[in-house]
Design a protein around this nucleic acid. Sequence first.
DNA 1: AAAACTTTGTTCGCTAATCAGACGAAGTTA
DNA 2: TAACTTCGTCTGATTAGCGAACAAAGTTTT
Lengths: 406, 406
Amino acid sequence: MKTPILLSATEAEIVRALRRKGQISRTQVADITGWSKAKTSTEIRALIGKGYLIEYDEGVSEGGRKPKLLRFNDQIGYVVGIDIGATNVDVILADVLGNVLQLLSEPADVRQPPAEVMAQAAALVKLVLDLQGAQAEQILGIGVGVPGPVDFTRGVLVAPPLMPDWENYSIRSFLKQDFPGAFVVVDNDVNIMALGEQRYGDAYGLEHFIFIKIGTGIGSGIVSNGKIHRGSNGCAGDIGHICVDKQGPICKCGNRGCLEAMAAGPAIAEKAFRAAQSGESDILRRMMNENDGIMTPELVSAACREGDEAALEIIRESGQMIGDVLAGLVNFFNPSHIFVAGGISNFGNHLLVAIRRAVLRRSLPLATTFLQINFSRIGATAGNKGVIALALEYLFVDEDKPFLNV
Amino acid sequence: MKTPILLSATEAEIVRALRRKGQISRTQVADITGWSKAKTSTEIRALIGKGYLIEYDEGVSEGGRKPKLLRFNDQIGYVVGIDIGATNVDVILADVLGNVLQLLSEPADVRQPPAEVMAQAAALVKLVLDLQGAQAEQILGIGVGVPGPVDFTRGVLVAPPLMPDWENYSIRSFLKQDFPGAFVVVDNDVNIMALGEQRYGDAYGLEHFIFIKIGTGIGSGIVSNGKIHRGSNGCAGDIGHICVDKQGPICKCGNRGCLEAMAAGPAIAEKAFRAAQSGESDILRRMMNENDGIMTPELVSAACREGDEAALEIIRESGQMIGDVLAGLVNFFNPSHIFVAGGISNFGNHLLVAIRRAVLRRSLPLATTFLQINFSRIGATAGNKGVIALALEYLFVDEDKPFLNV
DNA sequence: AAAACTTTGTTCGCTAATCAGACGAAGTTA
DNA sequence: TAACTTCGTCTGATTAGCGAACAAAGTTTT
């Protein structure tokens, strides 16, 4: 099967309307597009004939005949999302409505050679297919998220710090071997989380926002004028190495005082380790001892919940540094919303309050008056939702506007 | 006359093609659009009939009959640009091809009430009309640049720090009184410089770049995915108050160590003043004495050209601080180019080198490998070109896509 | 419960948009 | 000078798309 599915300009407009509304009647399509009912009707008949749309239900009457509601035909096939994290691979099987049908997650190590990791991912894809009783040929498209900078049009990583072996490795080519009928779209993991938030989260319909993920590293996804801003090399949003303190500790990137080195998970664990050892915090010390002497950000989170002052202070410091950096970005970019996600977001409101306070203190009033800073409520699943959203984004494309050589 | 000129979707496509090429033959239009020659011919005949296009010359033969080249009809009227700076108002009269016909500049003080400044601008517009022997009715559109945050759709300033009286003052309404036939588009001055650079400068066709203006203040215009990024409140690009030193001097915004307060014109003059007084630099002292004891950035610039080490060090410091901030923005935004303009750009290569060095040191390799940082070669005139580009941008609009209530 | 209205979606005839191809005009090349 | 090219127009033929009428399936009024 040829994919992505090419649509004429008229068909593409119907699909756009349908995507916005989820379900739609013929009359609504005519209203939205401005076409005559006649044209609308024949166009939709054609789309149903091709198997892309189906009449699935009757809507409620508004004083007359009930409308027949249309939606995408979930029988035409599946989309797959592959969310490659630093330590895990998630594989999601969904129908073309975006409903998640199967979800598998496995530990994985992206420092391994790309062929191995991708083979693992491909095996998982075959597994979810089996679980669903589906065939590989039924996969229409695959969206892939990777924790590194991506050349979006080529579907290739460029100079990824976490996974140097992946340089110039073509994820698209690999997946094309096992799933020749499917198109493959690859993007950076944080961009994908931002996309997920925009499609299925609180960022729905927003024009300008920043999605920031704080875990082992710190990265961000940027949406400008409603579209993902990837930058000229696909590495936009890499805020982890913005300098917060010229005298700060040396980061693995070689510079001093990077945000990531001072405020992310490892830095938090490091500070907590010292607080535990020095006796500054009994709670942290106890927790660390119960954990074989290993300090983790999760323990700090637990200590916060118990009200441990040292742990709280560590979190506040992180929040302030993150907020200081965000303050500059708010001045520069003027987003309407900032969404915070990642392991660190489990630290709760203390972190958020510290971030907000730092941003408000250092940003211009005009930029902060309507600014909202919140945790992503879909947080941990934003990536999973995003890879599906990415695949669905390119499931139907306007034949007049070719965009990438999938 | 009704303006902006509304075009059907087909007509709009021809206009887009024409804007890209500047001049075009019917056959080229048919090739670009994919329409039949018949349709192309009749559509163009209609546009000529309405007076929007003219056949102005014959092109060179490519082995057969010579094409008749089309372009916009410069007889249909004029566009006006009003570039309001902190200390000057520039008024430009141009034809619809973007050729500057008249240009007047007058000192002005934006701290005056807006009605006065706008009256001055309107008088200048009438003056350029007289000089050209043209009538007010012939003005099709007016592009306005102002040194403050603009709500683009309303054509109104919001919370402008330099010009508080302008809050909620409608530039559009004022100009509509004197020039009821013209549409009015208002934008921030740095956005406009970025637009000028994109249309008439070295940024031609670039997708992602930052235009930074360094003068009394420091501001930037951002282009993402080929379009001006204005942010959710229209104040994106306001990088002058990003913090470079938490222990720095207090800025007029109330915070400490803002980039603007430490690296812009006044800070440079201040440092030079001290160098002159302390005797650290004889050249600066002499120059200041010859200037009635008043130190200005221009004097520092002159001292640099004479090789004064103290002056050069001041410039290097400014460059480094600007570069430090830009480094963060490069990581975040990943532009392909940064263009530097404003009074400070007269300081020459020492400044640029210091900026580049700081950016290269602190930004990620991937983001800097292909990054170019240069002075805007159209620099001082970028704003003038930008206001005309802005007016031309909305001269013809697609009737199906209303965008602003001009 | 029948009659009158409403809304949805299809059918049908007509108009206008648009195409392919022929053609004349105006060049260049052999 | 003849042969070929390219540009733009013109001419039927086709088709896309509209409005209006209509059938289907509701709801509201009487």
